[in-house]
Design a protein around this nucleic acid. Sequence first.
DNA 1: CCCTATGTTCCCAA
DNA 2: CTTGGGAACATAGG
Length: 264
Amino acid sequence: MPELPEVETLCRQLRQVIVGAEITKTRIIDAKLGMITGIAGETVSGIRRHGKALAIELAGNRSLVLHFRMTGRLLWQHNGNGLLPHTRLVVSFVHGRVSLIDPRRFATVTVHKKGNGIPLGRDPLDDGDLSYLEEMAQHCTLPIKSFLMDQHRIAGIGNIYACEILHQARMDPWRRVNTLSPDEWKGIAEVMQKILSRAIACRGTSVSDWRDLFGKEGEYQGHLLVYSREGAACYGCGEEVIRKKLSGRGTYYCPTCQHGEGGS
DNA sequence: CCCTATGTTCCCAA
DNA sequence: CTTGGGAACATAGG
């Protein structure tokens, strides 16, 4: 479920609530997550995000790294009553608790030593210069959509935002990345930063069951131009928005506005 | 029963 | 080695 804007939303909200607080207890409800030991008594020193991964950093040299996959989310509760359905993990503090809720049980939690990160591509919000994308693409023949969603190249873009970025950049999702001009890369980079930052300002996209840390829906679903709009009229040209599979993922686009020699 | 789902990983083929 | 396709993971909803 969560892509970069949704994870960034959780990151910012967790900072308001648990940084500086001591973890009193951790409770694994789904054994599939594995054991988490020696965390109780630690103080949260910071919250960081890279791509779609969220790290709760501890005052020692360790961090709890969460990956939400398809349906994982976090919920902050002041009171510690019963568990909501699909709760897989609870991290308790004196003043409240954070629950990992995940119907499909694909989410992962791992304890990392400092400096032992998961190898990922650069995060598109780390700096303003995305020229590395064009360089990486020179000897690559992947379709642009697969390229943008490859977490080892750029970390954080998933299916919703890939569709939206390519639509606003007027780019055919099947276009091979080694055929893009410098101007086209410039357009992609600008649109990517614009869409991701606006989606963060909207606290993410609640097209299905995404909620922020406090249970509220995001608002970016009101700004989607193609995702989930199969059969509807393109806002740009009035033609029909199409959905086709690309690498197994539903790909929404306007064939009229998004041209190229990709053969969509 | 069918299909779909905001993600990642693994296996296999070309 | 690269890439692409499909299945798998587990569950809910249309």
